[in-house]
Write a protein that binds this DNA or RNA. Sequence first.
RNA 1: GGUGCCAUACCCAAGUGGUAAGGGAAAGGUCUGCAAAACCUUUAUACAUCGGUUCGAAUCCGAUUGGCACCUCCA
Length: 471
Amino acid sequence: MPVFLYNTMSRSLEAFEPLHDKEVGLYSCGPTVYNYAHIGNLRTFLFEDLLKRTLLISGFKVNHVMNITDVGHLTGDGDEGEDKIEKMANQSHKSVWDIAQFYTDAFFRDYDDLHMIRPNVVCKATDHIQQMIDLIKRLEEKGHTYVSGGNVYFSIDSIPDYGKLARLDLDSLKTAVRDDVSSDDNKKNPKDFVLWFTKSKHGEQAMMWDSPWGKGFPGWHIECSAMSMHYLGESFDIHCGGIDAIPVHHTNEIAQSEAATGKPWVKYWMHGEFLLDETGKMSKSKGEFLTLDLLKRKGYDAMDYRYYCLGGHYRSQLKFSFEALDTARKARKNVQDRIQSLLREGAKKVPLTSEKALQYQATFLEHVQHDLGSPRGLADLWGVLKDEALDCDERYTLIMFFDQVFGLGFASVELPEREDFPSEALALLEKRLQAKKEKNWQLADRLRSELDAMGYRVKDTPTGSSLEKKM
RNA sequence: GGUGCCAUACCCAAGUGGUAAGGGAAAGGUCUGCAAAACCUUUAUACAUCGGUUCGAAUCCGAUUGGCACCUCCA
Protein backbone atom coordinates (compact mmCIF):
# COMPACT_ATOMS: atom_id res chain seq x y z
CA MET A 1 0.00 0.00 0.00
CA PRO A 2 1.68 3.21 -1.11
CA VAL A 3 1.64 6.43 0.85
CA PHE A 4 -0.34 9.16 -0.86
CA LEU A 5 0.67 12.73 -0.17
CA TYR A 6 -0.70 16.01 -1.40
CA ASN A 7 1.99 17.82 -3.34
CA THR A 8 1.56 21.58 -3.38
CA MET A 9 3.56 21.74 -6.60
CA SER A 10 1.05 19.63 -8.56
CA ARG A 11 -1.93 20.54 -6.36
CA SER A 12 -2.85 16.90 -6.28
CA LEU A 13 -2.46 13.67 -4.38
CA GLU A 14 0.55 11.65 -5.49
CA ALA A 15 1.80 8.21 -4.63
CA PHE A 16 4.98 8.83 -2.69
CA GLU A 17 8.16 7.47 -4.26
CA PRO A 18 11.45 8.63 -2.79
CA LEU A 19 14.41 9.38 -5.03
CA HIS A 20 16.43 6.61 -3.36
CA ASP A 21 14.32 3.50 -2.71
CA LYS A 22 13.25 3.52 0.95
CA GLU A 23 15.34 6.48 2.12
CA VAL A 24 13.56 9.77 2.54
CA GLY A 25 15.24 13.15 2.72
CA LEU A 26 12.91 15.45 4.64
CA TYR A 27 13.53 19.12 5.25
CA SER A 28 11.24 21.18 7.41
CA CYS A 29 11.40 24.90 7.92
CA GLY A 30 12.28 25.43 11.55
CA PRO A 31 11.56 28.28 13.90
CA THR A 32 12.92 31.79 13.89
CA VAL A 33 14.16 31.98 17.44
CA TYR A 34 13.25 35.49 18.45
CA ASN A 35 10.31 34.65 20.69
CA TYR A 36 8.32 31.72 22.05
CA ALA A 37 6.49 29.56 19.55
CA HIS A 38 2.72 29.90 19.74
CA ILE A 39 0.47 26.90 19.40
CA GLY A 40 -0.20 27.76 15.77
CA ASN A 41 3.51 27.45 15.02
CA LEU A 42 3.51 24.20 16.91
CA ARG A 43 0.62 22.84 14.86
CA THR A 44 2.83 22.93 11.78
CA PHE A 45 5.56 21.03 13.56
CA LEU A 46 3.00 18.49 14.72
CA PHE A 47 1.92 18.00 11.12
CA GLU A 48 5.53 17.36 10.15
CA ASP A 49 5.90 14.89 12.98
CA LEU A 50 2.76 13.11 11.82
CA LEU A 51 4.25 12.95 8.33
CA LYS A 52 7.49 11.52 9.65
CA ARG A 53 5.75 8.93 11.81
CA THR A 54 3.53 7.89 8.92
CA LEU A 55 6.58 7.38 6.72
CA LEU A 56 8.34 5.44 9.45
CA ILE A 57 5.42 3.09 10.05
CA SER A 58 5.21 2.59 6.30
CA GLY A 59 8.73 1.21 6.25
CA PHE A 60 10.72 4.23 5.13
CA LYS A 61 13.92 5.46 6.67
CA VAL A 62 13.65 9.19 7.24
CA ASN A 63 16.55 11.59 7.32
CA HIS A 64 14.98 14.68 8.82
CA VAL A 65 16.77 18.02 8.71
CA MET A 66 15.42 21.13 10.37
CA ASN A 67 16.94 24.59 10.43
CA ILE A 68 17.02 27.14 13.19
CA THR A 69 16.77 30.66 11.83
CA ASP A 70 18.96 32.71 14.10
CA VAL A 71 19.86 35.47 11.69
CA GLY A 72 18.53 37.25 8.64
CA HIS A 73 14.80 37.01 9.19
CA LEU A 74 13.73 40.61 8.85
CA THR A 75 10.63 42.38 10.01
CA GLY A 76 10.30 44.14 6.70
CA ASP A 77 11.56 44.30 3.17
CA GLY A 78 14.88 45.39 1.70
CA ASP A 79 16.96 47.73 3.72
CA GLU A 80 13.90 48.82 5.66
CA GLY A 81 13.81 45.55 7.49
CA GLU A 82 15.12 44.93 10.93
CA ASP A 83 16.46 41.56 11.99
CA LYS A 84 13.88 39.98 14.28
CA ILE A 85 16.41 38.58 16.68
CA GLU A 86 18.45 41.78 16.73
CA LYS A 87 15.28 43.69 17.53
CA MET A 88 14.39 41.40 20.41
CA ALA A 89 17.95 41.60 21.72
CA ASN A 90 17.86 45.38 21.71
CA GLN A 91 14.54 45.39 23.51
CA SER A 92 15.66 43.01 26.21
CA HIS A 93 19.28 44.19 26.51
CA LYS A 94 20.65 40.75 25.85
CA SER A 95 23.00 39.58 23.15
CA VAL A 96 21.57 38.18 19.97
CA TRP A 97 23.30 34.89 20.73
CA ASP A 98 21.65 34.68 24.12
CA ILE A 99 18.26 35.42 22.63
CA ALA A 100 18.69 32.76 19.96
CA GLN A 101 19.87 30.16 22.45
CA PHE A 102 17.14 30.96 24.94
CA TYR A 103 14.31 30.59 22.44
CA THR A 104 15.88 27.58 20.79
CA ASP A 105 15.90 25.84 24.15
CA ALA A 106 12.31 26.89 24.78
CA PHE A 107 11.32 25.57 21.37
CA PHE A 108 12.79 22.14 21.98
CA ARG A 109 11.15 21.91 25.39
CA ASP A 110 7.82 22.26 23.60
CA TYR A 111 9.02 19.87 20.91
CA ASP A 112 9.78 17.18 23.48
CA ASP A 113 6.66 17.86 25.51
CA LEU A 114 4.58 17.27 22.41
CA HIS A 115 6.35 13.95 21.77
CA MET A 116 7.75 15.07 18.46
CA ILE A 117 10.61 12.93 17.25
CA ARG A 118 13.69 15.09 17.08
CA PRO A 119 15.18 15.73 13.65
CA ASN A 120 18.32 13.83 12.70
CA VAL A 121 20.02 17.15 12.00
CA VAL A 122 19.21 20.51 13.53
CA CYS A 123 21.21 23.22 11.81
CA LYS A 124 21.62 26.83 12.72
CA ALA A 125 21.83 29.45 10.01
CA THR A 126 24.77 31.13 11.72
CA ASP A 127 26.79 27.91 11.51
CA HIS A 128 26.39 27.76 7.73
CA ILE A 129 27.29 31.22 6.52
CA GLN A 130 30.03 29.77 4.33
CA GLN A 131 27.61 27.43 2.55
CA MET A 132 25.33 30.38 1.90
CA ILE A 133 28.17 32.49 0.53
CA ASP A 134 29.21 29.61 -1.71
CA LEU A 135 25.68 29.27 -3.03
CA ILE A 136 25.42 33.00 -3.73
CA LYS A 137 28.75 32.78 -5.56
CA ARG A 138 27.37 30.02 -7.76
CA LEU A 139 24.35 32.18 -8.56
CA GLU A 140 26.62 35.11 -9.31
CA GLU A 141 28.73 33.04 -11.72
CA LYS A 142 25.60 32.02 -13.60
CA GLY A 143 24.39 35.60 -13.85
CA HIS A 144 21.36 35.44 -11.58
CA THR A 145 22.41 38.24 -9.26
CA TYR A 146 23.12 41.95 -9.22
CA VAL A 147 24.40 44.35 -6.62
CA SER A 148 22.39 47.44 -5.88
CA GLY A 149 22.56 49.86 -3.02
CA GLY A 150 25.15 47.67 -1.35
CA ASN A 151 23.01 44.52 -1.29
CA VAL A 152 23.16 41.42 -3.47
CA TYR A 153 19.84 40.63 -5.12
CA PHE A 154 18.47 37.62 -6.92
CA SER A 155 16.97 38.58 -10.26
CA ILE A 156 13.77 36.66 -10.82
CA ASP A 157 13.78 37.63 -14.49
CA SER A 158 16.91 35.52 -14.93
CA ILE A 159 14.87 32.31 -14.67
CA PRO A 160 11.92 31.17 -16.76
CA ASP A 161 9.63 29.69 -14.15
CA TYR A 162 9.64 31.96 -11.12
CA GLY A 163 6.56 31.47 -8.95
CA LYS A 164 5.64 28.00 -10.22
CA LEU A 165 4.94 26.63 -6.74
CA ALA A 166 2.49 29.38 -5.83
CA ARG A 167 1.29 29.71 -9.45
CA LEU A 168 1.92 33.40 -9.21
CA ASP A 169 0.67 35.65 -11.94
CA LEU A 170 3.56 38.08 -11.87
CA ASP A 171 1.88 40.80 -13.90
CA SER A 172 -1.09 41.13 -11.61
CA LEU A 173 0.70 40.87 -8.29
CA LYS A 174 0.76 43.95 -6.18
CA THR A 175 3.80 44.67 -4.11
CA ALA A 176 3.88 46.08 -0.65
CA VAL A 177 0.11 45.92 -0.23
CA ARG A 178 0.44 45.79 3.51
CA ASP A 179 0.77 49.11 5.27
CA ASP A 180 3.79 48.09 7.27
CA VAL A 181 5.81 47.03 4.26
CA SER A 182 7.42 49.49 1.97
CA SER A 183 8.96 48.75 -1.38
CA ASP A 184 12.69 48.71 -1.98
CA ASP A 185 13.82 51.08 -4.72
CA ASN A 186 17.08 49.22 -5.21
CA LYS A 187 15.29 46.35 -6.91
CA LYS A 188 15.07 46.02 -10.66
CA ASN A 189 11.96 43.91 -10.27
CA PRO A 190 9.91 44.42 -7.13
CA LYS A 191 9.81 40.64 -6.66
CA ASP A 192 13.59 40.35 -6.56
CA PHE A 193 14.91 39.45 -3.17
CA VAL A 194 18.05 39.95 -1.17
CA LEU A 195 20.70 37.25 -0.97
CA TRP A 196 23.22 39.22 1.04
CA PHE A 197 22.89 42.48 2.94
CA THR A 198 25.72 44.87 3.54
CA LYS A 199 23.52 47.86 4.13
CA SER A 200 20.83 48.18 6.68
CA LYS A 201 19.11 51.31 7.90
CA HIS A 202 19.50 49.95 11.36
CA GLY A 203 23.25 50.19 11.08
CA GLU A 204 25.78 47.83 12.51
CA GLN A 205 24.43 44.53 13.68
CA ALA A 206 25.91 42.14 16.15
CA MET A 207 25.76 39.36 13.58
CA MET A 208 27.96 40.29 10.61
CA TRP A 209 30.28 38.22 8.49
CA ASP A 210 32.89 38.97 5.85
CA SER A 211 31.90 38.10 2.32
CA PRO A 212 33.01 38.79 -1.26
CA TRP A 213 30.42 41.60 -1.27
CA GLY A 214 31.44 43.16 1.99
CA LYS A 215 30.71 42.68 5.63
CA GLY A 216 27.09 41.85 6.22
CA PHE A 217 24.55 39.12 6.75
CA PRO A 218 22.51 36.72 4.61
CA GLY A 219 18.97 37.16 3.34
CA TRP A 220 16.39 34.95 4.91
CA HIS A 221 15.65 32.55 2.05
CA ILE A 222 19.21 31.53 1.27
CA GLU A 223 19.72 29.59 4.49
CA CYS A 224 17.17 26.90 3.68
CA SER A 225 18.57 26.35 0.21
CA ALA A 226 22.15 26.19 1.41
CA MET A 227 21.57 23.96 4.40
CA SER A 228 19.08 21.57 2.85
CA MET A 229 21.42 20.92 -0.07
CA HIS A 230 24.37 20.63 2.28
CA TYR A 231 22.73 17.87 4.30
CA LEU A 232 20.34 16.24 1.84
CA GLY A 233 21.97 16.79 -1.55
CA GLU A 234 21.03 19.00 -4.46
CA SER A 235 17.78 17.11 -4.99
CA PHE A 236 15.76 15.59 -2.18
CA ASP A 237 12.32 14.25 -1.42
CA ILE A 238 10.14 16.39 0.81
CA HIS A 239 10.20 19.98 1.92
CA CYS A 240 7.50 21.14 4.27
CA GLY A 241 6.42 24.15 6.22
CA GLY A 242 3.47 26.39 6.91
CA ILE A 243 1.11 27.36 4.12
CA ASP A 244 2.23 30.97 4.39
CA ALA A 245 5.67 30.00 3.10
CA ILE A 246 4.36 29.11 -0.37
CA PRO A 247 4.18 32.47 -2.14
CA VAL A 248 7.40 34.02 -0.92
CA HIS A 249 9.77 31.93 1.14
CA HIS A 250 9.48 28.65 -0.72
CA THR A 251 9.03 30.37 -4.04
CA ASN A 252 12.32 32.17 -3.55
CA GLU A 253 14.06 29.07 -2.24
CA ILE A 254 13.10 27.18 -5.38
CA ALA A 255 14.23 30.03 -7.60
CA GLN A 256 17.70 30.31 -6.12
CA SER A 257 18.23 26.57 -5.60
CA GLU A 258 17.28 25.47 -9.08
CA ALA A 259 19.04 28.44 -10.65
CA ALA A 260 22.24 27.42 -8.86
CA THR A 261 22.16 23.69 -9.64
CA GLY A 262 20.17 23.55 -12.85
CA LYS A 263 18.37 20.54 -11.37
CA PRO A 264 14.94 19.94 -9.91
CA TRP A 265 15.35 20.62 -6.22
CA VAL A 266 12.46 19.15 -4.21
CA LYS A 267 10.12 16.37 -5.33
CA TYR A 268 7.23 16.86 -2.88
CA TRP A 269 6.13 20.09 -1.26
CA MET A 270 3.84 19.82 1.72
CA HIS A 271 2.24 22.62 3.70
CA GLY A 272 0.29 22.70 6.90
CA GLU A 273 -2.74 24.95 7.24
CA PHE A 274 -3.09 27.57 9.91
CA LEU A 275 -4.55 27.35 13.34
CA LEU A 276 -6.80 30.34 13.81
CA ASP A 277 -8.05 32.04 16.92
CA GLU A 278 -11.25 34.03 17.37
CA THR A 279 -9.72 37.02 15.64
CA GLY A 280 -8.40 35.09 12.68
CA LYS A 281 -4.75 34.30 12.22
CA MET A 282 -2.86 33.59 15.39
CA SER A 283 -0.42 36.26 16.32
CA LYS A 284 2.25 36.90 18.85
CA SER A 285 1.35 40.52 19.29
CA LYS A 286 -2.42 40.83 19.40
CA GLY A 287 -4.77 39.08 21.77
CA GLU A 288 -3.70 36.33 24.08
CA PHE A 289 -0.27 34.92 23.18
CA LEU A 290 -1.17 31.25 23.13
CA THR A 291 1.82 29.17 24.01
CA LEU A 292 2.02 25.55 25.05
CA ASP A 293 3.22 26.80 28.39
CA LEU A 294 0.06 28.85 28.79
CA LEU A 295 -2.09 25.79 28.07
CA LYS A 296 -0.15 23.87 30.70
CA ARG A 297 -0.61 26.63 33.24
CA LYS A 298 -4.33 26.40 32.55
CA GLY A 299 -4.19 22.74 33.44
CA TYR A 300 -3.98 21.09 30.04
CA ASP A 301 -1.48 18.43 29.11
CA ALA A 302 0.66 18.81 26.00
CA MET A 303 -0.98 15.60 24.79
CA ASP A 304 -4.40 17.25 24.94
CA TYR A 305 -3.17 19.72 22.37
CA ARG A 306 -1.63 16.95 20.30
CA TYR A 307 -4.91 15.02 20.36
CA TYR A 308 -6.76 18.17 19.39
CA CYS A 309 -4.53 18.71 16.37
CA LEU A 310 -4.83 15.09 15.26
CA GLY A 311 -8.60 15.53 15.22
CA GLY A 312 -8.40 17.89 12.26
CA HIS A 313 -6.76 17.31 8.91
CA TYR A 314 -3.45 19.12 8.44
CA ARG A 315 -4.65 20.85 5.28
CA SER A 316 -7.73 22.31 6.95
CA GLN A 317 -7.80 25.46 8.95
CA LEU A 318 -8.59 24.77 12.55
CA LYS A 319 -10.20 27.36 14.74
CA PHE A 320 -8.78 27.12 18.21
CA SER A 321 -10.97 27.52 21.26
CA PHE A 322 -10.67 26.30 24.81
CA GLU A 323 -14.02 24.54 24.37
CA ALA A 324 -12.53 22.52 21.53
CA LEU A 325 -9.45 21.79 23.61
CA ASP A 326 -11.68 20.65 26.48
CA THR A 327 -13.33 18.21 24.11
CA ALA A 328 -9.97 16.80 23.12
CA ARG A 329 -8.89 16.51 26.73
CA LYS A 330 -12.03 14.63 27.66
CA ALA A 331 -11.73 12.33 24.68
CA ARG A 332 -8.08 11.58 25.43
CA LYS A 333 -8.89 10.87 29.04
CA ASN A 334 -11.62 8.48 27.97
CA VAL A 335 -9.13 6.64 25.78
CA GLN A 336 -6.75 6.35 28.69
CA ASP A 337 -9.51 5.07 30.97
CA ARG A 338 -10.29 2.38 28.45
CA ILE A 339 -6.63 1.45 28.19
CA GLN A 340 -6.49 1.20 31.96
CA SER A 341 -9.43 -1.12 32.02
CA LEU A 342 -7.70 -3.28 29.40
CA LEU A 343 -4.63 -3.33 31.62
CA ARG A 344 -6.80 -4.33 34.55
CA GLU A 345 -7.79 -7.35 32.49
CA GLY A 346 -4.09 -8.09 32.00
CA ALA A 347 -3.70 -6.80 28.46
CA LYS A 348 -0.34 -7.36 26.80
CA LYS A 349 1.15 -6.98 23.35
CA VAL A 350 0.73 -10.05 21.15
CA PRO A 351 1.28 -10.90 17.49
CA LEU A 352 -1.91 -10.06 15.61
CA THR A 353 -3.47 -13.06 13.91
CA SER A 354 -7.24 -12.72 13.85
CA GLU A 355 -8.79 -11.53 10.65
CA LYS A 356 -10.64 -8.79 12.46
CA ALA A 357 -7.53 -7.40 14.12
CA LEU A 358 -5.54 -7.47 10.90
CA GLN A 359 -8.40 -5.73 9.18
CA TYR A 360 -8.29 -2.89 11.71
CA GLN A 361 -4.56 -2.59 11.24
CA ALA A 362 -4.86 -2.45 7.47
CA THR A 363 -7.70 0.05 7.56
CA PHE A 364 -5.80 2.29 9.92
CA LEU A 365 -2.74 2.27 7.69
CA GLU A 366 -4.87 3.00 4.67
CA HIS A 367 -6.32 6.02 6.44
CA VAL A 368 -3.08 7.56 7.63
CA GLN A 369 -1.30 6.73 4.39
CA HIS A 370 -3.99 8.62 2.57
CA ASP A 371 -2.49 12.07 2.99
CA LEU A 372 -2.13 11.73 6.75
CA GLY A 373 -5.76 11.07 7.61
CA SER A 374 -5.31 11.34 11.34
CA PRO A 375 -9.00 12.11 12.04
CA ARG A 376 -9.92 8.82 10.38
CA GLY A 377 -7.18 7.15 12.34
CA LEU A 378 -8.66 8.41 15.58
CA ALA A 379 -12.04 7.04 14.53
CA ASP A 380 -10.32 3.70 13.95
CA LEU A 381 -8.89 3.90 17.44
CA TRP A 382 -12.38 4.33 18.86
CA GLY A 383 -13.60 1.46 16.76
CA VAL A 384 -10.97 -0.79 18.32
CA LEU A 385 -11.73 0.43 21.82
CA LYS A 386 -15.40 -0.42 21.42
CA ASP A 387 -15.32 -3.55 19.30
CA GLU A 388 -16.10 -6.54 21.47
CA ALA A 389 -15.17 -8.94 18.70
CA LEU A 390 -11.55 -8.14 19.54
CA ASP A 391 -9.99 -9.64 22.61
CA CYS A 392 -8.24 -7.61 25.22
CA ASP A 393 -4.70 -8.31 23.98
CA GLU A 394 -5.57 -7.55 20.38
CA ARG A 395 -7.10 -4.26 21.35
CA TYR A 396 -4.10 -3.27 23.41
CA THR A 397 -1.71 -4.30 20.64
CA LEU A 398 -3.62 -2.33 18.02
CA ILE A 399 -3.72 0.75 20.22
CA MET A 400 0.03 0.59 20.70
CA PHE A 401 0.47 0.16 16.96
CA PHE A 402 -1.73 3.17 16.20
CA ASP A 403 0.13 5.23 18.74
CA GLN A 404 3.33 4.91 16.75
CA VAL A 405 1.58 7.36 14.44
CA PHE A 406 -0.37 9.36 17.01
CA GLY A 407 2.50 9.79 19.45
CA LEU A 408 0.04 10.29 22.30
CA GLY A 409 2.08 8.30 24.78
CA PHE A 410 -0.44 5.50 25.27
CA ALA A 411 2.38 3.04 26.01
CA SER A 412 3.05 4.86 29.26
CA VAL A 413 -0.53 4.55 30.49
CA GLU A 414 -0.45 2.48 33.64
CA LEU A 415 -2.88 1.35 36.25
CA PRO A 416 -3.35 4.07 38.83
CA GLU A 417 -1.79 3.38 42.16
CA ARG A 418 -3.50 4.20 45.38
CA GLU A 419 -0.34 5.85 46.60
CA ASP A 420 -0.91 8.57 44.04
CA PHE A 421 -3.46 10.07 46.40
CA PRO A 422 -2.67 11.93 49.61
CA SER A 423 -3.17 9.89 52.75
CA GLU A 424 -5.82 12.26 54.11
CA ALA A 425 -7.94 11.68 51.01
CA LEU A 426 -7.55 7.93 51.33
CA ALA A 427 -8.46 8.17 55.02
CA LEU A 428 -11.67 9.99 54.13
CA LEU A 429 -12.43 7.37 51.53
CA GLU A 430 -11.92 4.67 54.15
CA LYS A 431 -14.20 6.48 56.61
CA ARG A 432 -16.87 6.78 53.95
CA LEU A 433 -16.64 3.07 53.20
CA GLN A 434 -17.22 2.40 56.87
CA ALA A 435 -20.17 4.81 56.99
CA LYS A 436 -21.68 3.08 54.02
CA LYS A 437 -21.37 -0.26 55.73
CA GLU A 438 -23.23 1.22 58.67
CA LYS A 439 -25.77 2.69 56.28
CA ASN A 440 -24.96 6.12 57.64
CA TRP A 441 -25.83 7.78 54.33
CA GLN A 442 -25.65 11.31 55.70
CA LEU A 443 -22.05 10.90 56.81
CA ALA A 444 -21.13 9.05 53.64
CA ASP A 445 -22.54 11.82 51.48
CA ARG A 446 -20.80 14.49 53.52
CA LEU A 447 -17.47 12.70 53.17
CA ARG A 448 -18.08 12.40 49.45
CA SER A 449 -18.60 16.13 49.09
CA GLU A 450 -15.52 16.80 51.24
CA LEU A 451 -13.47 14.71 48.85
CA ASP A 452 -15.13 16.50 45.98
CA ALA A 453 -14.05 19.83 47.45
CA MET A 454 -10.50 18.49 47.68
CA GLY A 455 -10.65 17.77 43.98
CA TYR A 456 -11.36 14.05 44.04
CA ARG A 457 -14.29 12.21 42.58
CA VAL A 458 -15.46 9.05 44.32
CA LYS A 459 -16.22 6.08 42.13
CA ASP A 460 -18.20 3.22 43.64
CA THR A 461 -17.90 -0.10 41.92
CA PRO A 462 -19.10 -3.57 42.88
CA THR A 463 -15.57 -4.34 44.04
CA GLY A 464 -15.15 -1.25 46.21
CA SER A 465 -14.61 2.48 46.03
CA SER A 466 -11.82 4.41 44.41
CA LEU A 467 -10.78 7.97 43.82
CA GLU A 468 -10.19 9.90 40.69
CA LYS A 469 -8.54 13.28 40.39
CA LYS A 470 -10.90 15.74 38.81
CA MET A 471 -9.70 17.69 35.79
C1' G B 1 -6.71 43.75 -8.13
C1' G B 2 -4.49 38.65 -7.97
C1' U B 3 -4.01 33.64 -5.65
C1' G B 4 -5.70 29.72 -2.64
C1' C B 5 -9.03 27.59 0.91
C1' C B 6 -13.66 26.76 3.51
C1' A B 7 -19.24 26.45 4.49
C1' U B 8 -21.56 19.07 7.04
C1' A B 9 -26.06 17.76 13.37
C1' C B 10 -26.09 21.64 19.83
C1' C B 11 -20.30 22.19 19.43
C1' C B 12 -15.60 20.32 17.21
C1' A B 13 -14.76 17.50 12.90
C1' A B 14 -13.96 13.27 8.86
C1' G B 15 -15.79 12.06 4.26
C1' U B 16 -11.35 9.26 -1.91
C1' G B 17 -19.54 9.91 -7.26
C1' G B 18 -22.74 4.89 -4.98
C1' U B 19 -26.34 6.52 -0.72
C1' A B 20 -23.52 10.87 5.97
C1' A B 21 -16.63 8.42 10.44
C1' G B 22 -15.34 9.81 15.16
C1' G B 23 -15.21 12.81 19.57
C1' G B 24 -17.58 16.13 22.98
C1' A B 25 -22.40 17.51 24.72
C1' A B 26 -27.48 16.36 25.68
C1' A B 27 -31.69 12.94 26.56
C1' G B 28 -33.62 8.03 28.03
C1' G B 29 -32.36 3.35 30.30
C1' U B 30 -29.39 -0.36 33.38
C1' C B 31 -26.73 -0.24 37.87
C1' U B 32 -26.78 2.47 42.74
C1' G B 33 -29.13 3.87 49.53
C1' C B 34 -28.76 8.45 46.52
C1' A B 35 -25.24 10.21 43.24
C1' A B 36 -20.92 9.85 40.30
C1' A B 37 -18.43 6.49 37.21
C1' A B 38 -19.32 2.53 33.97
C1' C B 39 -22.40 0.19 30.40
C1' C B 40 -26.57 0.29 26.71
C1' U B 41 -29.74 3.23 23.54
C1' U B 42 -31.07 7.74 21.00
C1' U B 43 -29.61 12.45 18.33
C1' A B 44 -28.31 15.03 9.86
C1' U B 45 -34.49 12.08 4.05
C1' A B 46 -29.53 14.64 3.84
C1' C B 47 -24.20 18.17 3.82
C1' A B 48 -24.95 27.43 2.75
C1' U B 49 -28.37 28.72 -1.68
C1' C B 50 -29.66 28.04 -6.90
C1' G B 51 -28.76 25.68 -11.39
C1' G B 52 -26.02 21.85 -14.38
C1' U B 53 -23.43 16.98 -15.60
C1' U B 54 -24.64 11.77 -14.15
C1' C B 55 -28.41 5.81 -13.57
C1' G B 56 -26.57 8.10 -9.07
C1' A B 57 -23.27 14.22 -6.02
C1' A B 58 -21.79 16.39 0.48
C1' U B 59 -18.30 14.77 -3.18
C1' C B 60 -17.63 17.05 -10.31
C1' C B 61 -18.99 21.98 -13.11
C1' G B 62 -21.13 27.04 -12.96
C1' A B 63 -23.42 31.07 -10.36
C1' U B 64 -24.90 33.38 -5.70
C1' U B 65 -24.28 34.36 -0.39
C1' G B 66 -21.14 34.21 3.85
C1' G B 67 -16.25 33.36 6.07
C1' C B 68 -10.80 32.71 6.16
C1' A B 69 -5.78 33.01 4.59
C1' C B 70 -1.77 34.77 1.44
C1' C B 71 0.39 38.61 -2.18
C1' U B 72 8.25 40.46 0.90
C1' C B 73 6.86 39.76 9.73
C1' C B 74 4.31 35.25 9.51
C1' A B 75 3.78 28.14 10.98
